[in-house]
Amino acid sequence: MESHMATTTSRSPNTVSLKLMIDPKSNRLLFAEAGKDFVDFLFYIMSLPIGTVVRLLGKQATVGCIGNIYSSIENLGDSHFLSAPKKDMLLKPMLTNYAANVAFLLPSIQSSTHTNLYKCGSRRCMSVTIKCFSCCPERFSNNSTHGSMCQKLTFVNLTNGALYSGGDADGGFVKGGVVYMIMDDLTVTSMSGTTIITLLNEFNVKDVSDLEEKVIAVGVNEGVELLRASMQTKTALSSVFLVKKESSVKSEPLH
């Protein structure tokens, strides 16, 4: 079975392509084929602070008690916190800058505006703090420039194209030019003939020609649903992209 990502499907600049391989007889999603852009998005989920996840999904949509913790921070009076910035930092944590050039498949979330870092005047000092005018821990070294940490560092705005690429011109996390296999439970592996054959045998698929290929465009709405599904089910792709066939047998009401 030859495996390749469809490149002719028209899609919005704000979406990425995902090819679903479906067994129509059982209406079961076997796996999906994806390129770098979709895999980068999946891996980017791992870098999201919990506070950001709660804001994206809603306090009532998260698993367990995390939503209650978020609500507690929100509802607790400012007088109970050491400072207003500390409360704001919990509700709007700073997003990581390691996700350079990752397809933006999640709504724009504003980070805390109170998070500042400070250092002392020494060029060789590697220490930073969030509290201005703290004493530099390296002040006892031979370098006399170590002292009060009041030199504010500047954050780069990652939402306007000034993205950290980590030395990779492509940005993101994984290499391009590779077709990746995404399982229903979001397990990611590189695509190969061996993995495909093994998977088809596992699902007892006898004839590859019976499988249905469906190329879809994944946008922000689907990105949020994938984030939600990744925390709630082991069949994330199916729950978001596979339309459930209604049973032909109608249930009768109990008397």
Rank of each mutant, 00 (worst) to 15 (best):
A6T: 11
T15R: 13
I22T: 08
I22N: 11
P24I: 04
K25R: 14
A32E: 05
A32D: 01
F38K: 04
G58K: 03
G64V: 06
G67D: 10
I69T: 01
I69C: 01
Y70V: 11
S79W: 04
F81A: 05
A84L: 09
P85F: 11
K87F: 08
D88T: 06
L91C: 08
T96A: 11
F104T: 10
I109F: 01
T115G: 00
T115A: 08
Y118F: 15
C120S: 02
R124W: 11
C125L: 06
K131F: 12
C132A: 07
F133E: 12
P137C: 06
S144L: 14
Q151G: 00
Q151D: 04
V156C: 07
N157T: 07
N160E: 13
A169C: 02
D170H: 12
V178K: 08
V178T: 13
V179F: 00
I182C: 02
L186Q: 01
T189S: 14
S192Q: 07
T194W: 08
T198N: 15
L200I: 02
E202K: 15
E212N: 12
E213F: 12
V215P: 00
I216Y: 05
R228H: 15
R228V: 03
T235Q: 09
L237I: 01
S238A: 12
F241Y: 04
L242G: 02
V243H: 14
